[in-house]
Design a binder for these strands. Structure first.
Lengths: 210, 210
DNA sequence: GATGTAAGTAGACACTGTACACTTATATTA
DNA sequence: TAATATAAGTGTACAGTGTCTACTTACATC
């Protein structure tokens, strides 16, 4: 935890990354409101104002932390996608893709609530292609969802007229459940039950979209 | 805005309500984070610590403000429910009820983002029957949704086996869309378009639930 | 009319973000 | 190599926040 090596040089060397790492740690534990600039500098054993050489404000630091969180989310979804086979039967493949995205999203929300809340705490533009938001496939969570929906379309499970804006409909459902469970009235519901609801939810989307 | 009558008595007389009213005003403009205790006391022309005679902490004040927000949401949903007729045709009535609840919810979120965000900023228990959360029908938003779903069940639109926990599924969808639009990546989407998506979403729920 | 108590005030403290002026050591250049 | 420009640190200070402790005021009650 504590940076073992006491800095002997005047320069820190990697302060920006150190601050983001500390911020991410705080976000993980307490969500966006827990990302506190002074604490980050404290952990880096640096004066508070040193942060201002790398971030214009604590909001800017939080921005960087948020990107890191979104990237972790993308990674979680990718992992879920990776679990399904190569997809010889198109319709099955498409259905499993959609399910993987939805459940990967929910599972991340349940296991990393702080990061999840941070990821969505402040409006980043959907279409902004921030490389920091992606994982190994180079796609952000939204784009991974689009991918799954395209598979639905290609396999004939989704009609062309229903494809438009389907991202938003699907996204709304899992995002809503995640937030109700994390910082909403369902926060006392056990995670397994939330995930079970998630399964029903994804099924509902599958049936309801077309 | 400014309380015209300068208090001549030592006692304020109605400080608790004044603080909640100020808090509500702040929440309306800036969401939960804008509810600032000292500012509330300032508006009431009272010393900061006077608040502590009525609230144990600023979190307690925020709690009261949140309840007020939830109550406003319930009122908005009730209004939407009131617009549909007395319901001679059961299935039509049920469908319209569900739609009214969903769209009332979304419309409130779009027109009163600050209050909406405040309403869901911190976990209140679902089942706690706080009278402060209800409007004229004595039902909180969740219970209004249950009512609509019961109408679906009674009219035969929903099978008994699908009725269980259907609240959570339906709620997730509109809640998710609302938050994506308010403080999520869809915050640049025009409100009319969000509401249009909402219509599709409610249809999806209707088809997907059963 | 004395007195207990609810509702206010006064002052202090730790914590936050951040502005301004300063210093230090590295990088660039003459 | 020596001079210097600059990036990356420090120190001090300030306003704003929530909240603790001790004091005061005036209403209610006996």
């Amino acid at each position: 935890m504590a940076n073992a090596k006491k800095r002997k040089t005047f320069r820190h060397g990697d302060l920006r990354n150190a601050l983001v790492a500390s911020g991410l740690k705080m976000a993980r534990v307490g969500g966006p409101d827990a990302v506190i600039l002074r604490e980050a500098t404290r952990q880096a054993e640096v004066s508070p104002n040193a942060a201002y050489r790398h971030f214009a404000s604590q909001a800017a630091l939080l921005d960087a932390v948020r990107s890191a969180c979104i990237s972790k989310l993308a990674a979680a979804i990718e992992e879920e996608l990776g679990k399904i086979g190569p997809g010889r039967v198109p319709k099955l493949f498409a259905r499993r893709s959609l399910r993987a995205v939805g459940m990967g999203y929910l599972r991340f929300a349940m296991s990393e609530p702080g990061m999840f809340r941070t990821a969505f705490s402040i409006p980043p533009s959907v279409h902004e292609q921030n490389p920091a938001n992606t994982a190994s496939m180079g796609l952000n969570p939204f784009q991974l969802l689009s991918l799954a929906l395209d598979r639905m379309l290609d396999s004939g499970l989704l009609k062309k007229k229903d494809r438009q804006d389907a991202e938003y409909l699907a996204w709304s459902t899992v995002h809503g459940l995640a937030l109700l469970a994390l910082e909403g009235p369902l926060n006392e519901m056990p995670h397994e039950r939330v995930l079970a609801l998630g399964e029903r939810l994804v099924s509902m989307v599958e049936r309801g979209l077309s």
